[in-house]
Write a protein that binds this DNA or RNA. Structure first.
Lengths: 153, 153
DNA sequence: TATTGTTATACTCTATAACTATA
DNA sequence: TATAGTTATAGAGTATAACAATA
């Protein structure tokens, strides 16, 4: 009878991630973190975090938007938006004006400086898209965006 | 001459998110958060957070894997893995054994109970995939996974 | 000298409760 | 009574520095 040692405390040579890679959530999270990592580095030039960029971009394209609307659009909670908006205001990138129909709310508006900064930041972001999806064809990138929207919309 | 009031502090009716929706990072993050939100609720039954599931799944499929290998595979930092592994060990879901080739490391192995739990959890996760991607055809889901991998690999 | 695992700790992000001013 | 915005605070997640044991 030959030597038998069926389970000799094995070591792992190469990690098998095949199961996790079958999950949409795992892949979407990895992809998001990869893209956003590059995005963060690039936006440091404008002193904008990812969430600052998102908020300021929505204000640029939706002048008069309220904090509540920003929270709904971006899935964040009102208390976590307060200091962010305050900082943008102190940097003179946005201003608050009284809301025309609702005395409780403020309308958020880009300043000329804020609009200029965001146009530059959005240009940089759009350039980055080509880097981030450099291994995708234009058609594949379009398909990816379409399928991702079908997941979360 | 009619009344003119070209910029009367507008209010926003419906938020225009079209620019952000052109960005892969924005869409991937939204999709990941949507899927993972459902995932978290479902995994509460097994008392597993997303990261617990990922670690335990890798241990199941890679018996003998080290902490260092887990960190590399999941993009997390060693200090943040310590208490997670300790908790899995205290729950008797995994055990540590001496690494065969490296006295500094421990090999992590699933216990029979841990393997049984993870097989159940993985079944639930795979079922959830059909819910999460219910608006996608099978072919679309396959395409989505392929394109996401091309982004982060 | 470099690496594995660990402790301690700091920083960021996210979540909850409670308050005010207005609808 | 309900909602917008705010404050304070708690909790989760992520980050760095430094150490002991081993390679």
């Amino acid at each position: 009878m030959p030597t038998e040692n069926p389970k000799p405390t094995p070591s792992v040579d190469e990690v098998d991630t095949r199961y996790l890679e079958t999950l949409v959530g795992y892949n979407a999270r990895r992809a998001a973190l990869a893209v956003i990592g590059v995005f963060m580095e690039r936006m440091a030039e404008y002193d904008l975090r990812v969430v600052d960029f998102s908020v300021a971009s929505l204000i640029l394209h939706n002048p008069g938007i309220t904090s509540r609307q920003l929270c709904s659009a971006l899935g964040m909670l009102p208390p976590n938006l307060v200091s962010l908006v305050n900082t943008l205001e102190k940097r003179r990138l946005i201003t608050r004006r009284p809301h025309p129909n609702d005395g409780r709310a403020s309308g958020l508006h880009p300043t000329p400086e804020g609009a200029a900064l965001m146009r530059a930041a959005e240009s940089a972001a759009s350039e980055l898209e080509f880097v981030a999806s450099s291994r995708l064809t234009v058609a594949e990138r379009k398909t990816l965006l379409r399928l991702l929207k079908k997941i979360y919309l």
